[in-house]
């Protein structure tokens, strides 16, 4: 089945992700797919949470930290500025404390905690996670397309949804037990009622958000997850390993896209010997890819002679990704 047929036959798969090792062209293929869907009348949000991502470079305009920016009809692109999100969030928390207790300033001890918590290495990741949930639960786009940060992170990232959910359940249980003691103490003291526990409300809120996103990430009906692979030995091996791990986390894999394929007719021209050797090497690994991934391959994308930056170039690549590359090869 070609990439185009996957999209056409599975219109409910609105959450589209591209994964793979760094440098294989995930961001470029995300942008290209977004372009293709948008030009077929779908409202598409393309976003990236990777601080090393390059949507700004691909579209040749600065969209970093600016929210969804309209790129063309039906296509919006967004690059999340995690640092700024954390800073704004810290401010929000401070303000909430001031409002709740009527303080003039946040107590030093608490303020130190807020600052120090942001220094935690885990802060950025959890902020990014939350940003993704935000984007996915709020919008009203037909498609959400994003490139996952390099493989190791992507895996953790996906597994986090489950883990967070467990965390929240445990913590909620503890909080509920505390509430039982509150009730008991109140009954014994013959007090009328127990104060409402706002923390339970917060925990429910967090849990709902996490569940929403984890459902989306592992939902075979709504999620399409594509692996990007290139004809190189190491990459093929890494991709196989990663695919096995993803399967363990119940992430449905919708197929593989083979990127950076040197044009086969190139070998017929007058080319320097090193290029000829490279083509020979590629052919060997192309064979390996065909054997390994077989009919899970959704498209073959040629190595382009130019960077994929700017809409005209993306349009050319879209033609290759969805039309030319989809045929059996």
């Amino acid at each position: 089945m070609s990439l185009r047929e996957v999209f056409e036959s599975e219109p409910d798969r609105r959450y589209v992700m591209f994964g793979g090792k760094g440098g294989l062209g995930k961001t470029t293929l995300s942008a290209t797919s977004a372009f293709w869907l948008a030009s077929h009348g779908k409202r598409v949000l393309l976003f990236s949470v990777d601080p090393q991502a390059s949507l700004s470079d691909i579209f040749q305009r600065d969209i970093f930290g600016k929210g969804p920016v309209s790129i063309m009809e039906n296509l919006w692109a967004q690059e999340v500025d995690a640092d700024r999100r954390i800073r704004e969030y810290q401010e929000e928390i401070r303000k909430k404390i001031l409002d709740m207790y009527g303080f003039d300033k946040v107590p030093e001890e608490i303020d130190n905690y807020i600052a120090a918590a942001s220094a935690e290495p885990a802060m950025e990741e959890s902020a990014i996670f939350d940003a993704v949930v935000d984007i996915i639960v709020q919008g009203d786009y037909d498609y959400y397309i994003y490139d996952l940060v390099p493989l190791g992170h992507a895996l953790y990232y996906l597994s986090m949804a489950k883990v967070y959910d467990e965390w929240i359940n445990k913590i909620t249980k503890l909080r509920e037990d505390m509430r039982e003691y509150d009730k008991l103490a109140a009954t014994l003291r013959r007090e009328e009622k127990v104060q409402e526990d706002q923390i339970l409300g917060e925990l429910t809120y967090i849990k709902d958000r996490i569940n929403a996103s984890s459902r989306i990430l592992t939902d075979r009906k709504r999620t399409a997850f594509f692996f990007v692979v290139v004809p190189e030995e190491m990459i093929i091996l890494d991709t196989q390993k990663a695919a096995a791990l993803f399967a363990k986390f119940d992430v449905p894999i919708s197929g593989y896209i083979v990127n950076r394929v040197l044009p086969p007719d190139l070998g017929q021209g007058k080319i320097p010997p090193y290029l000829r050797n490279r083509i020979a090497m590629q052919q060997k690994y192309m064979e390996q890819i065909r054997v390994t991934f077989g009919d899970e391959i959704r498209s073959y994308v040629p190595e382009m002679e130019r960077d994929i930056t700017g809409l005209p170039m993306i349009e050319r690549l879209a033609q290759r990704l969805f039309v030319d590359g989809g045929g059996a090869r």
């Binding site: 290495p121 885990a122 953790y156 597994s159 986090m160 883990v163 445990k170 503890l174």
Partner: peptide, 22 residues
């Protein structure tokens, strides 16, 4: 005096990507 198993918390805490990075 809480009868919750610590292991679940430990597993969760150490699954965090930042944990390996650190």
């Amino acid at each position: 005096d809480i009868s919750t198993k610590a292991d679940d918390f430990v597993e969760s805490a150490t699954m965090n990507p930042a944990f390996e990075e650190s």
